[in-house]
Design a protein around this nucleic acid. Structure first.
Lengths: 259, 259
DNA sequence: GGGGTGAATTTATCCGGATAAATATCATAA
DNA sequence: TTATGATATTTATCCGGATAAATTCACCCC
Protein backbone atom coordinates (compact mmCIF):
# COMPACT_ATOMS: atom_id res chain seq x y z
CA UNK A 1 0.00 0.00 0.00
CA UNK A 2 2.74 2.52 0.71
CA UNK A 3 3.75 4.17 -2.57
CA UNK A 4 7.02 2.44 -3.26
CA UNK A 5 9.73 4.47 -4.91
CA UNK A 6 9.45 4.72 -8.63
CA UNK A 7 11.63 2.64 -10.89
CA UNK A 8 14.49 5.01 -11.23
CA UNK A 9 15.45 6.89 -8.10
CA UNK A 10 14.79 10.57 -8.19
CA UNK A 11 17.52 12.70 -9.63
CA UNK A 12 17.23 15.02 -6.66
CA UNK A 13 17.83 12.10 -4.30
CA UNK A 14 20.95 11.19 -6.22
CA UNK A 15 22.16 14.75 -5.84
CA UNK A 16 21.37 14.64 -2.13
CA UNK A 17 23.42 11.48 -1.68
CA UNK A 18 26.28 12.87 -3.77
CA UNK A 19 26.41 16.04 -1.74
CA UNK A 20 26.42 14.03 1.47
CA UNK A 21 29.25 11.92 0.14
CA UNK A 22 31.08 15.10 -0.75
CA UNK A 23 30.65 16.39 2.79
CA UNK A 24 32.11 13.17 4.14
CA UNK A 25 34.91 12.98 1.59
CA UNK A 26 36.02 16.55 2.09
CA UNK A 27 35.52 16.44 5.85
CA UNK A 28 33.56 19.67 5.63
CA UNK A 29 32.82 21.56 8.81
CA UNK A 30 29.81 23.73 9.61
CA UNK A 31 30.18 27.00 7.72
CA UNK A 32 32.01 25.44 4.78
CA UNK A 33 30.69 26.00 1.28
CA UNK A 34 28.69 23.33 -0.49
CA UNK A 35 28.01 23.33 -4.26
CA UNK A 36 25.43 26.00 -5.04
CA UNK A 37 22.37 25.95 -7.25
CA UNK A 38 24.01 26.98 -10.55
CA UNK A 39 27.02 24.74 -9.93
CA UNK A 40 24.84 21.69 -9.41
CA UNK A 41 22.74 22.58 -12.46
CA UNK A 42 25.88 22.65 -14.57
CA UNK A 43 27.21 19.44 -13.03
CA UNK A 44 24.09 17.37 -13.47
CA UNK A 45 22.64 19.09 -16.52
CA UNK A 46 19.20 19.21 -14.98
CA UNK A 47 16.74 22.00 -14.32
CA UNK A 48 16.94 24.26 -11.33
CA UNK A 49 13.73 22.80 -9.95
CA UNK A 50 15.42 19.47 -9.47
CA UNK A 51 18.47 21.00 -7.83
CA UNK A 52 16.25 23.11 -5.64
CA UNK A 53 14.45 20.02 -4.44
CA UNK A 54 17.74 18.40 -3.51
CA UNK A 55 18.94 21.46 -1.63
CA UNK A 56 15.59 21.77 0.09
CA UNK A 57 15.84 18.17 1.26
CA UNK A 58 19.26 18.92 2.71
CA UNK A 59 17.80 21.95 4.44
CA UNK A 60 14.98 19.90 5.88
CA UNK A 61 17.49 17.44 7.25
CA UNK A 62 19.21 20.40 8.85
CA UNK A 63 22.46 19.80 7.00
CA UNK A 64 22.78 23.00 4.98
CA UNK A 65 21.55 26.58 5.06
CA UNK A 66 21.12 28.78 2.02
CA UNK A 67 22.30 32.37 1.75
CA UNK A 68 21.26 34.92 -0.84
CA UNK A 69 23.38 37.53 -2.48
CA UNK A 70 26.94 37.51 -3.83
CA UNK A 71 29.03 34.79 -2.23
CA UNK A 72 25.77 33.17 -1.26
CA UNK A 73 24.77 29.61 -1.91
CA UNK A 74 24.62 26.51 0.21
CA UNK A 75 26.67 26.19 3.36
CA UNK A 76 27.05 23.35 5.79
CA UNK A 77 24.81 24.26 8.69
CA UNK A 78 25.47 24.11 12.36
CA UNK A 79 23.80 20.99 13.61
CA UNK A 80 20.42 21.90 15.06
CA UNK A 81 18.24 19.49 17.02
CA UNK A 82 15.11 21.63 16.66
CA UNK A 83 13.62 20.00 13.56
CA UNK A 84 14.07 16.54 15.05
CA UNK A 85 12.66 17.75 18.33
CA UNK A 86 9.61 19.18 16.62
CA UNK A 87 8.89 16.02 14.67
CA UNK A 88 9.31 13.90 17.75
CA UNK A 89 6.93 16.10 19.72
CA UNK A 90 4.36 15.76 16.96
CA UNK A 91 4.72 12.01 17.02
CA UNK A 92 4.38 11.78 20.77
CA UNK A 93 1.44 14.15 20.95
CA UNK A 94 -0.22 11.93 18.39
CA UNK A 95 0.34 9.04 20.72
CA UNK A 96 -1.38 10.95 23.50
CA UNK A 97 1.69 11.14 25.67
CA UNK A 98 0.66 12.70 28.97
CA UNK A 99 2.40 14.29 31.91
CA UNK A 100 2.87 11.02 33.71
CA UNK A 101 4.54 9.56 30.66
CA UNK A 102 6.98 12.46 30.56
CA UNK A 103 7.78 12.13 34.23
CA UNK A 104 8.47 8.43 33.97
CA UNK A 105 11.54 9.41 31.95
CA UNK A 106 12.21 12.69 33.62
CA UNK A 107 12.56 11.22 37.06
CA UNK A 108 15.45 9.04 35.92
CA UNK A 109 17.05 11.44 33.43
CA UNK A 110 17.02 14.75 35.33
CA UNK A 111 18.90 13.44 38.40
CA UNK A 112 21.58 11.98 36.14
CA UNK A 113 21.79 15.21 34.14
CA UNK A 114 21.84 17.45 37.19
CA UNK A 115 24.52 15.39 38.89
CA UNK A 116 26.66 15.27 35.78
CA UNK A 117 27.02 19.05 35.58
CA UNK A 118 28.20 19.38 39.15
CA UNK A 119 31.46 21.32 39.11
CA UNK A 120 31.00 22.17 35.43
CA UNK A 121 28.77 25.21 35.82
CA UNK A 122 30.42 28.33 34.48
CA UNK A 123 29.95 31.48 36.56
CA UNK A 124 27.65 32.80 33.83
CA UNK A 125 25.41 29.77 33.97
CA UNK A 126 25.39 29.76 37.73
CA UNK A 127 24.37 33.41 37.71
CA UNK A 128 21.62 32.57 35.23
CA UNK A 129 20.33 29.89 37.57
CA UNK A 130 20.34 32.35 40.48
CA UNK A 131 18.53 34.94 38.39
CA UNK A 132 15.95 32.37 37.43
CA UNK A 133 15.32 31.41 41.04
CA UNK A 134 15.07 35.07 42.00
CA UNK A 135 12.57 35.82 39.27
CA UNK A 136 10.50 32.74 40.07
CA UNK A 137 10.40 33.77 43.73
CA UNK A 138 8.53 36.98 43.03
CA UNK A 139 4.88 37.02 43.78
CA UNK A 140 2.98 36.99 40.48
CA UNK A 141 0.18 39.53 40.18
CA UNK A 142 -1.92 38.64 37.19
CA UNK A 143 -3.03 35.23 36.00
CA UNK A 144 -0.99 35.71 32.87
CA UNK A 145 2.09 36.45 34.92
CA UNK A 146 1.55 33.37 37.02
CA UNK A 147 1.33 31.35 33.87
CA UNK A 148 4.53 32.74 32.46
CA UNK A 149 6.29 32.17 35.74
CA UNK A 150 5.21 28.57 35.60
CA UNK A 151 6.97 28.24 32.25
CA UNK A 152 9.94 30.21 33.52
CA UNK A 153 10.55 27.58 36.16
CA UNK A 154 11.22 25.11 33.37
CA UNK A 155 14.00 27.38 32.18
CA UNK A 156 15.99 26.41 35.29
CA UNK A 157 16.18 22.89 33.95
CA UNK A 158 17.02 24.11 30.45
CA UNK A 159 20.04 25.97 31.79
CA UNK A 160 21.24 22.77 33.41
CA UNK A 161 20.73 20.87 30.16
CA UNK A 162 22.76 23.46 28.24
CA UNK A 163 25.63 22.91 30.65
CA UNK A 164 25.65 19.17 30.06
CA UNK A 165 28.60 18.00 27.95
CA UNK A 166 26.80 14.88 26.76
CA UNK A 167 24.85 16.04 23.70
CA UNK A 168 22.30 13.24 23.95
CA UNK A 169 21.62 13.87 27.60
CA UNK A 170 21.37 17.59 26.91
CA UNK A 171 18.92 16.99 24.10
CA UNK A 172 16.69 14.69 26.11
CA UNK A 173 16.68 17.10 29.02
CA UNK A 174 15.65 19.99 26.80
CA UNK A 175 13.16 17.83 24.99
CA UNK A 176 11.38 16.78 28.16
CA UNK A 177 11.16 20.40 29.21
CA UNK A 178 9.59 21.29 25.88
CA UNK A 179 7.06 18.51 26.23
CA UNK A 180 6.08 19.83 29.64
CA UNK A 181 5.96 23.32 28.26
CA UNK A 182 3.51 22.18 25.60
CA UNK A 183 1.39 20.56 28.27
CA UNK A 184 1.43 23.65 30.47
CA UNK A 185 0.64 25.95 27.54
CA UNK A 186 -2.21 23.75 26.42
CA UNK A 187 -3.74 23.35 29.82
CA UNK A 188 -3.90 26.44 31.93
CA UNK A 189 -5.77 24.20 34.33
CA UNK A 190 -2.41 23.81 35.88
CA UNK A 191 -2.35 27.43 36.99
CA UNK A 192 -4.90 27.48 39.82
CA UNK A 193 -2.70 25.46 42.13
CA UNK A 194 0.44 27.23 41.09
CA UNK A 195 1.27 28.53 44.55
CA UNK A 196 1.52 25.14 46.06
CA UNK A 197 3.60 23.66 43.26
CA UNK A 198 5.39 26.78 42.21
CA UNK A 199 6.81 27.43 45.63
CA UNK A 200 7.69 23.80 45.93
CA UNK A 201 9.54 23.87 42.60
CA UNK A 202 11.53 26.96 43.44
CA UNK A 203 12.31 25.51 46.84
CA UNK A 204 13.94 22.52 45.22
CA UNK A 205 15.81 24.80 42.87
CA UNK A 206 17.25 26.67 45.84
CA UNK A 207 18.37 23.44 47.43
CA UNK A 208 20.03 22.46 44.16
CA UNK A 209 21.92 25.75 44.01
CA UNK A 210 23.24 25.15 47.50
CA UNK A 211 24.38 21.65 46.61
CA UNK A 212 26.08 22.95 43.46
CA UNK A 213 27.95 25.53 45.51
CA UNK A 214 29.37 22.73 47.62
CA UNK A 215 30.06 20.58 44.56
CA UNK A 216 28.19 17.68 46.11
CA UNK A 217 27.05 15.63 43.11
CA UNK A 218 25.42 12.94 45.21
CA UNK A 219 23.28 15.50 46.99
CA UNK A 220 22.40 17.16 43.70
CA UNK A 221 21.18 13.82 42.44
CA UNK A 222 19.16 13.13 45.56
CA UNK A 223 17.52 16.56 45.58
CA UNK A 224 16.63 16.37 41.91
CA UNK A 225 15.15 12.91 42.41
CA UNK A 226 12.98 14.19 45.23
CA UNK A 227 12.03 17.20 43.09
CA UNK A 228 10.92 14.92 40.27
CA UNK A 229 8.95 12.60 42.50
CA UNK A 230 7.22 15.57 44.05
CA UNK A 231 6.40 17.09 40.67
CA UNK A 232 5.25 13.76 39.29
CA UNK A 233 2.61 13.47 41.98
CA UNK A 234 1.17 16.82 40.95
CA UNK A 235 1.05 15.83 37.30
CA UNK A 236 -2.14 13.82 37.45
CA UNK A 237 -4.01 17.10 37.10
CA UNK A 238 -2.48 17.46 33.65
CA UNK A 239 -3.93 14.31 32.15
CA UNK A 240 -6.08 13.73 29.13
CA UNK A 241 -7.45 15.76 26.24
CA UNK A 242 -4.22 16.59 24.44
CA UNK A 243 -6.17 15.73 21.31
CA UNK A 244 -4.53 17.02 18.14
CA UNK A 245 -3.88 20.58 19.17
CA UNK A 246 -0.18 19.91 18.73
CA UNK A 247 -0.46 20.54 15.03
CA UNK A 248 -1.12 24.20 15.53
CA UNK A 249 1.77 26.43 16.30
CA UNK A 250 1.99 27.09 19.99
CA UNK A 251 2.10 30.73 21.00
CA UNK A 252 5.53 31.77 22.13
CA UNK A 253 7.32 29.26 20.02
CA UNK A 254 8.67 30.73 16.80
CA UNK A 255 6.82 29.33 13.84
CA UNK A 256 8.69 26.64 12.01
CA UNK A 257 9.95 27.56 8.61
CA UNK A 258 7.50 25.36 6.85
CA UNK A 259 8.89 22.25 5.26
CA UNK B 1 22.70 35.42 8.93
CA UNK B 2 19.99 32.78 8.65
CA UNK B 3 17.83 33.66 5.64
CA UNK B 4 14.77 35.12 7.26
CA UNK B 5 11.44 34.29 5.69
CA UNK B 6 10.50 36.46 2.80
CA UNK B 7 7.95 39.20 3.13
CA UNK B 8 4.87 37.24 2.35
CA UNK B 9 4.73 33.75 3.72
CA UNK B 10 4.89 31.03 1.18
CA UNK B 11 1.59 29.93 -0.27
CA UNK B 12 2.58 26.32 0.30
CA UNK B 13 3.14 27.05 3.98
CA UNK B 14 -0.31 28.55 4.23
CA UNK B 15 -1.72 25.41 2.69
CA UNK B 16 0.27 23.30 5.12
CA UNK B 17 -1.13 25.20 8.07
CA UNK B 18 -4.66 25.09 6.69
CA UNK B 19 -4.48 21.34 6.20
CA UNK B 20 -3.18 20.93 9.73
CA UNK B 21 -6.04 23.02 11.04
CA UNK B 22 -8.41 20.88 9.03
CA UNK B 23 -6.98 17.75 10.59
CA UNK B 24 -7.52 19.24 14.04
CA UNK B 25 -10.98 20.60 13.27
CA UNK B 26 -12.28 17.37 11.78
CA UNK B 27 -10.50 15.20 14.36
CA UNK B 28 -9.12 13.08 11.55
CA UNK B 29 -7.59 9.72 12.39
CA UNK B 30 -4.76 7.93 10.60
CA UNK B 31 -6.11 6.52 7.34
CA UNK B 32 -8.63 9.32 6.85
CA UNK B 33 -8.63 11.22 3.58
CA UNK B 34 -7.05 14.64 3.32
CA UNK B 35 -7.68 17.06 0.43
CA UNK B 36 -5.85 15.80 -2.65
CA UNK B 37 -3.75 17.61 -5.21
CA UNK B 38 -6.50 18.67 -7.64
CA UNK B 39 -8.85 19.63 -4.79
CA UNK B 40 -6.27 21.94 -3.26
CA UNK B 41 -5.42 23.40 -6.67
CA UNK B 42 -9.08 24.28 -7.18
CA UNK B 43 -9.43 25.63 -3.64
CA UNK B 44 -6.39 27.90 -3.70
CA UNK B 45 -6.28 28.66 -7.42
CA UNK B 46 -2.57 28.03 -7.56
CA UNK B 47 -0.38 25.77 -9.64
CA UNK B 48 0.16 22.12 -8.85
CA UNK B 49 3.79 22.79 -8.04
CA UNK B 50 2.79 24.86 -5.06
CA UNK B 51 0.31 22.27 -3.83
CA UNK B 52 2.87 19.55 -4.33
CA UNK B 53 5.33 21.42 -2.17
CA UNK B 54 2.78 21.69 0.60
CA UNK B 55 1.89 18.01 0.44
CA UNK B 56 5.57 17.13 0.35
CA UNK B 57 6.15 19.15 3.48
CA UNK B 58 3.36 17.25 5.20
CA UNK B 59 4.94 14.02 4.06
CA UNK B 60 8.32 15.06 5.41
CA UNK B 61 6.72 15.81 8.74
CA UNK B 62 5.32 12.31 8.63
CA UNK B 63 1.72 13.53 8.76
CA UNK B 64 0.36 12.26 5.46
CA UNK B 65 1.13 9.59 2.90
CA UNK B 66 0.23 9.81 -0.77
CA UNK B 67 -1.38 7.06 -2.80
CA UNK B 68 -1.54 6.82 -6.57
CA UNK B 69 -4.38 5.54 -8.63
CA UNK B 70 -8.14 5.99 -8.43
CA UNK B 71 -9.26 6.80 -4.91
CA UNK B 72 -5.69 7.86 -4.29
CA UNK B 73 -4.56 11.14 -2.89
CA UNK B 74 -3.35 12.26 0.51
CA UNK B 75 -4.19 10.28 3.62
CA UNK B 76 -3.38 10.94 7.23
CA UNK B 77 -0.41 8.73 8.01
CA UNK B 78 0.22 6.50 10.93
CA UNK B 79 2.57 8.35 13.21
CA UNK B 80 6.11 7.19 12.57
CA UNK B 81 9.09 8.17 14.69
CA UNK B 82 11.65 7.10 12.09
CA UNK B 83 12.18 10.48 10.39
CA UNK B 84 12.69 12.17 13.74
CA UNK B 85 14.96 9.38 14.85
CA UNK B 86 17.05 9.69 11.73
CA UNK B 87 17.47 13.45 12.07
CA UNK B 88 18.35 13.12 15.71
CA UNK B 89 20.97 10.50 14.95
CA UNK B 90 22.49 12.79 12.34
CA UNK B 91 22.62 15.61 14.84
CA UNK B 92 24.24 13.51 17.52
CA UNK B 93 26.75 11.94 15.19
CA UNK B 94 27.73 15.43 14.19
CA UNK B 95 28.32 16.14 17.83
CA UNK B 96 30.60 13.14 18.07
CA UNK B 97 28.46 11.29 20.56
CA UNK B 98 30.33 8.19 21.64
CA UNK B 99 29.47 4.92 23.33
CA UNK B 100 30.01 6.31 26.80
CA UNK B 101 27.60 9.12 26.07
CA UNK B 102 24.95 6.63 25.02
CA UNK B 103 25.44 4.55 28.11
CA UNK B 104 25.14 7.51 30.44
CA UNK B 105 21.49 7.63 29.41
CA UNK B 106 21.03 3.97 28.79
CA UNK B 107 22.00 2.96 32.29
CA UNK B 108 19.17 5.02 33.76
CA UNK B 109 16.58 4.48 31.02
CA UNK B 110 16.83 0.74 30.36
CA UNK B 111 16.23 -0.34 33.97
CA UNK B 112 13.15 1.87 34.11
CA UNK B 113 11.93 0.56 30.79
CA UNK B 114 12.62 -3.08 31.61
CA UNK B 115 10.91 -2.82 34.98
CA UNK B 116 7.89 -1.07 33.52
CA UNK B 117 7.05 -3.94 31.17
CA UNK B 118 7.06 -6.54 33.93
CA UNK B 119 3.78 -8.41 33.77
CA UNK B 120 2.92 -6.77 30.46
CA UNK B 121 4.77 -9.12 28.14
CA UNK B 122 2.41 -10.93 25.81
CA UNK B 123 3.16 -14.61 25.21
CA UNK B 124 4.27 -13.69 21.69
CA UNK B 125 6.77 -11.14 22.91
CA UNK B 126 8.03 -13.45 25.61
CA UNK B 127 8.54 -16.16 23.02
CA UNK B 128 10.40 -13.66 20.85
CA UNK B 129 12.69 -12.85 23.76
CA UNK B 130 13.36 -16.55 24.33
CA UNK B 131 14.05 -17.09 20.65
CA UNK B 132 16.47 -14.19 20.70
CA UNK B 133 18.35 -15.59 23.67
CA UNK B 134 18.46 -19.01 22.04
CA UNK B 135 19.82 -17.62 18.80
CA UNK B 136 22.38 -15.46 20.58
CA UNK B 137 23.55 -18.50 22.55
CA UNK B 138 24.69 -20.36 19.47
CA UNK B 139 28.37 -20.43 18.81
CA UNK B 140 29.09 -18.14 15.85
CA UNK B 141 31.34 -19.63 13.18
CA UNK B 142 32.46 -16.84 10.87
CA UNK B 143 33.50 -13.34 11.76
CA UNK B 144 30.52 -12.03 9.86
CA UNK B 145 28.20 -14.22 11.89
CA UNK B 146 29.74 -13.02 15.12
CA UNK B 147 29.15 -9.48 14.03
CA UNK B 148 25.53 -10.10 13.18
CA UNK B 149 25.00 -11.85 16.46
CA UNK B 150 26.37 -8.82 18.24
CA UNK B 151 23.67 -6.73 16.58
CA UNK B 152 21.08 -9.39 17.24
CA UNK B 153 21.66 -9.01 20.95
CA UNK B 154 20.41 -5.46 20.68
CA UNK B 155 17.15 -6.83 19.35
CA UNK B 156 16.42 -8.21 22.81
CA UNK B 157 16.20 -4.66 24.08
CA UNK B 158 14.13 -3.57 21.10
CA UNK B 159 11.53 -6.20 21.92
CA UNK B 160 11.31 -4.83 25.44
CA UNK B 161 10.95 -1.29 24.08
CA UNK B 162 8.12 -2.37 21.80
CA UNK B 163 6.29 -3.77 24.81
CA UNK B 164 6.51 -0.48 26.70
CA UNK B 165 3.18 1.36 26.88
CA UNK B 166 4.86 4.75 27.34
CA UNK B 167 5.53 5.96 23.79
CA UNK B 168 8.33 8.29 24.86
CA UNK B 169 10.11 5.62 26.85
CA UNK B 170 9.66 3.18 23.98
CA UNK B 171 11.11 5.67 21.54
CA UNK B 172 14.13 6.49 23.65
CA UNK B 173 14.80 2.81 24.25
CA UNK B 174 14.69 2.05 20.55
CA UNK B 175 16.69 5.14 19.74
CA UNK B 176 19.53 4.22 22.08
CA UNK B 177 19.64 0.77 20.54
CA UNK B 178 19.92 2.32 17.09
CA UNK B 179 22.74 4.57 18.21
CA UNK B 180 24.61 1.56 19.56
CA UNK B 181 23.89 -0.32 16.38
CA UNK B 182 25.45 2.48 14.36
CA UNK B 183 28.51 2.35 16.59
CA UNK B 184 28.81 -1.41 16.28
CA UNK B 185 28.33 -1.32 12.52
CA UNK B 186 30.91 1.40 12.13
CA UNK B 187 33.48 -0.22 14.32
CA UNK B 188 33.97 -3.88 13.93
CA UNK B 189 36.77 -3.37 16.41
CA UNK B 190 34.18 -4.42 18.89
CA UNK B 191 34.11 -7.94 17.51
CA UNK B 192 37.44 -9.35 18.72
CA UNK B 193 36.34 -9.49 22.32
CA UNK B 194 32.86 -10.61 21.46
CA UNK B 195 33.02 -13.84 23.42
CA UNK B 196 33.61 -12.17 26.69
CA UNK B 197 30.95 -9.53 26.20
CA UNK B 198 28.57 -11.54 24.12
CA UNK B 199 28.30 -14.30 26.65
CA UNK B 200 27.97 -11.76 29.38
CA UNK B 201 25.14 -9.98 27.55
CA UNK B 202 23.21 -13.15 26.91
CA UNK B 203 23.76 -14.18 30.48
CA UNK B 204 22.06 -11.03 31.70
CA UNK B 205 19.26 -11.58 29.22
CA UNK B 206 18.67 -15.04 30.67
CA UNK B 207 18.52 -13.62 34.17
CA UNK B 208 16.00 -11.05 32.96
CA UNK B 209 13.80 -13.74 31.44
CA UNK B 210 13.78 -15.57 34.76
CA UNK B 211 12.84 -12.44 36.63
CA UNK B 212 10.06 -11.72 34.14
CA UNK B 213 8.69 -15.21 34.64
CA UNK B 214 8.37 -14.48 38.34
CA UNK B 215 6.96 -11.01 37.69
CA UNK B 216 9.58 -9.47 39.96
CA UNK B 217 9.90 -5.89 38.69
CA UNK B 218 12.44 -4.90 41.31
CA UNK B 219 14.71 -7.72 40.32
CA UNK B 220 14.27 -6.91 36.64
CA UNK B 221 15.39 -3.38 37.39
CA UNK B 222 18.39 -4.52 39.38
CA UNK B 223 19.52 -7.02 36.75
CA UNK B 224 19.19 -4.51 33.94
CA UNK B 225 21.14 -1.94 35.95
CA UNK B 226 23.95 -4.44 36.47
CA UNK B 227 23.76 -5.34 32.77
CA UNK B 228 24.15 -1.71 31.78
CA UNK B 229 27.01 -1.03 34.15
CA UNK B 230 28.78 -4.10 32.87
CA UNK B 231 28.26 -3.10 29.26
CA UNK B 232 29.28 0.48 29.93
CA UNK B 233 32.67 -0.64 31.16
CA UNK B 234 33.27 -2.45 27.89
CA UNK B 235 32.31 0.57 25.84
CA UNK B 236 35.60 2.42 26.15
CA UNK B 237 36.90 0.30 23.29
CA UNK B 238 34.26 1.89 21.07
CA UNK B 239 35.48 5.46 21.40
CA UNK B 240 36.49 8.00 18.82
CA UNK B 241 36.53 8.30 15.03
CA UNK B 242 32.80 8.42 14.35
CA UNK B 243 33.71 11.25 12.01
CA UNK B 244 30.99 12.00 9.48
CA UNK B 245 30.30 8.53 8.23
CA UNK B 246 26.78 8.90 9.57
CA UNK B 247 25.70 10.67 6.42
CA UNK B 248 26.06 7.56 4.34
CA UNK B 249 23.37 4.98 4.54
CA UNK B 250 24.35 2.22 6.86
CA UNK B 251 24.17 -1.27 5.43
CA UNK B 252 21.28 -3.23 6.84
CA UNK B 253 19.13 -0.22 7.43
CA UNK B 254 16.60 0.40 4.71
CA UNK B 255 17.44 3.50 2.78
CA UNK B 256 15.38 6.51 3.72
CA UNK B 257 12.91 7.68 1.14
CA UNK B 258 14.96 10.69 0.18
CA UNK B 259 13.76 14.01 1.45
C1' DG C 1 37.12 59.49 5.14
C1' DG C 2 32.37 58.25 6.10
C1' DG C 3 27.97 57.20 4.89
C1' DG C 4 24.42 56.32 1.84
C1' DT C 5 22.89 54.64 -2.97
C1' DG C 6 22.43 51.46 -6.46
C1' DA C 7 23.92 47.55 -9.28
C1' DA C 8 25.08 42.71 -9.46
C1' DT C 9 24.53 38.22 -7.68
C1' DT C 10 22.05 34.63 -5.76
C1' DT C 11 18.28 32.46 -3.81
C1' DA C 12 12.88 32.39 -3.17
C1' DT C 13 8.61 31.70 -5.04
C1' DC C 14 5.33 30.48 -8.42
C1' DC C 15 3.64 28.95 -12.90
C1' DG C 16 1.87 25.47 -16.26
C1' DG C 17 2.96 21.73 -19.13
C1' DA C 18 4.79 17.08 -20.54
C1' DT C 19 5.74 12.32 -19.68
C1' DA C 20 6.03 8.28 -16.69
C1' DA C 21 4.49 5.21 -13.13
C1' DA C 22 1.23 3.09 -9.98
C1' DT C 23 -3.19 1.32 -8.94
C1' DA C 24 -8.21 0.54 -8.73
C1' DT C 25 -11.98 -0.62 -11.53
C1' DC C 26 -14.30 -2.73 -14.92
C1' DA C 27 -14.91 -5.50 -18.97
C1' DT C 28 -13.83 -9.63 -21.09
C1' DA C 29 -12.72 -14.29 -21.79
C1' DA C 30 -11.71 -19.00 -20.13
C1' DT D 1 -16.81 -18.03 -11.26
C1' DT D 2 -12.31 -16.68 -11.81
C1' DA D 3 -8.40 -14.88 -13.98
C1' DT D 4 -6.62 -11.67 -17.19
C1' DG D 5 -6.08 -7.50 -19.43
C1' DA D 6 -7.49 -2.73 -20.83
C1' DT D 7 -8.68 1.76 -19.04
C1' DA D 8 -9.06 5.67 -16.26
C1' DT D 9 -7.46 8.19 -12.36
C1' DT D 10 -4.02 10.05 -9.63
C1' DT D 11 0.44 10.99 -8.15
C1' DA D 12 5.72 11.28 -9.47
C1' DT D 13 9.16 13.49 -11.79
C1' DC D 14 11.22 16.95 -14.50
C1' DC D 15 11.51 21.13 -17.28
C1' DG D 16 12.46 26.11 -18.11
C1' DG D 17 10.88 30.66 -17.45
C1' DA D 18 9.26 34.89 -14.94
C1' DT D 19 9.26 37.91 -11.04
C1' DA D 20 10.51 39.19 -6.32
C1' DA D 21 13.48 39.56 -2.39
C1' DA D 22 17.80 39.63 0.11
C1' DT D 23 22.54 40.49 0.42
C1' DT D 24 27.08 42.08 -0.81
C1' DC D 25 30.05 45.31 -2.73
C1' DA D 26 31.56 49.06 -5.35
C1' DC D 27 30.81 53.61 -6.19
C1' DC D 28 29.73 58.31 -5.46
C1' DC D 29 28.63 62.33 -2.93
C1' DC D 30 29.33 65.03 0.98
Amino acid sequence: MPPRPLRRTKLSDIIVQDVKRLIVAECLEPGDRVPSEPELIAQYGCSKGTVREALKALQVEGLVTMRTGPGGGAYLADADPEPASRMLRNFLHFRHLDGEGVYQIRKVVEPELAASVTGRLTPERFAALEDNVAECSRHPETEEEQHRQRILELEFHNILADACPNPLLAFIGRFLNEMLRDLVVLKKAYVPERHQFGDSNVGYHRLLLAAYREGDAARVRAIMLAHMHDAERHMSALEGEMANSFLLEFPGREASRGV
